[in-house]
C-alpha cells in the first residue's frame, strides 16, 4: 500500500459524551500545504493538536513518513517515542508561547542543544541561520517581552524550524496579531511554502489560505464538510454549510 507523507486515519475524539472529531481521514503529500478552516468549535484545532499528540485521539491513527505517531506502547516507551516524533513535527501557536525567561537566541537553541547535543558554536550558527531566515537576526539577544507580536511569532517559527521538522503545524498563527502585523508572519509562511515545507495550517484568513495552500478543508461539528483546491472551496463550494460559513465570514471581514 502506498502511503501519503502524513496520514490521518479515522481520527475520532470525544470528551465523555461530546464527540469533537468524528471519523476524520486526511492525506497530505510531502511538500503540500493544507489549510483547515471552519467555525470555532468545529474541531479544527483539536485535529491539528492530535497530529503531534498534544490532544490525544480516542480513536484512529496518525502517520508521518511511514511511522505511526500515536502508536500503542507502554507508557515509558511511548514517552520516548512521542518525544522523538515531536522533534519532527514543528508547531506554531496562536499565542506564540515563546519562553519569556530566555533570549531570542536561547529560545531557538534550547531544544537542539538539549535533544541533539550540538555544541554551543553549532547552536549559535543554527540560531543565526534560522533567525536570519525569518528576518529576526538583529533581535537575537532581545527577550520576547521586547518584541512585537509579529516579531514574536517569527521567532516562534524559527524556534520550531531549528529542530529541522518534516512537518509544520500552524494553529491560528496570526489570529492574536494586530492587523498590521499579520503580513510579516504571512510572508514567512509563504517563504516556507516556496521551500516546499509540508504544512498544515488552521486559519481564519481565507485570502491567505487561497493564495498559499494546495488544498482547503472546511470542518464543522467534528466532520470534514468539504475539501478541495482553494479555488473550488472558496469560489464554488458544493455544500450549503460551506457557503453559509464563507458568507458570514465575508460579512465579518467588512
Amino acid at each position: 500500500m502506498s502511503q501519503a507523507f502524513v496520514e490521518i486515519r479515522h481520527a475520532q475524539k470525544s470528551y465523555g459524551q461530546l464527540e469533537v472529531l468524528k471519523d476524520i481521514s486526511l492525506n497530505v503529500d510531502r511538500g503540500q500545504i493544507v489549510a483547515i478552516i471552519g467555525p470555532s468549535g468545529s474541531g479544527k484545532s483539536t485535529l491539528l493538536r492530535a497530529i503531534n499528540d498534544l490532544d490525544p485521539l480516542t480513536g484512529g491513527e496518525i502517520w508521518l513518513d511511514g511511522v505511526q505517531v500515536n502508536k500503542a506502547l507502554p507508557h515509558r516507551q511511548y514517552e520516548k517515542h512521542i518525544n522523538q516524533m515531536r522533534q519532527e513535527i514543528g508547531m506554531v501557536f496562536q499565542h506564540f508561547n515563546l519562553f519569556p525567561h530566555l533570549t531570542v537566541r536561547e529560545n531557538v537553541t534550547m531544544a537542539p542543544k538539549l535533544l541533539k547535543k550540538i555544541s554551543d558554536k553549532e547552536a549559535n550558527a543554527l540560531a543565526e541561520e534560522q533567525l536570519d531566515h525569518v528576518g529576526m537576526l538583529e533581535r537575537i539577544d532581545y527577550y520576547p517581552a521586547q518584541l512585537s507580536g509579529g516579531q514574536k511569532q517569527r521567532v516562534a517559527i524559527a524556534r520550531a524550524l531549528a529542530m529541522k521538522p518534516k512537518l509544520m503545524l500552524f494553529d491560528e498563527a496570526t489570529s492574536a496579531l494586530d492587523p498590521e502585523l499579520v503580513e510579516e508572519v504571512n510572508l514567512v509562511m509563504k517563504k516556507l511554502a516556496q521551500e516546499h515545507m509540508t504544512m498544515i495550517i488552521v486559519t481564519h484568513e481565507m485570502d491567505f489560505a487561497a493564495s498559499v495552500c494546495d488544498r482547503v478543508l472546511f470542518m464543522d461539528q467534528g466532520v470534514v464538510v468539504e475539501e478541495g483546491p482553494p479555488e473550488q472551496v472558496f469560489k464554488n463550494p458544493t455544500q450549503e454549510r460551506t457557503r453559509n460559513f464563507l458568507r458570514k465570514h465575508l460579512e465579518g471581514a467588512k
Partner: peptide, 15 residues
C-alpha cells in the same frame, strides 16, 4: 501558562 509546557513538549522535550 499551560502553553509554556506545551511549547516545550512540541519541541520534543520530556515532561
Amino acid at each position: 501558562d499551560k502553553g509554556q509546557g506545551e511549547a516545550a513538549r512540541t519541541l520534543g522535550l520530556s515532561r
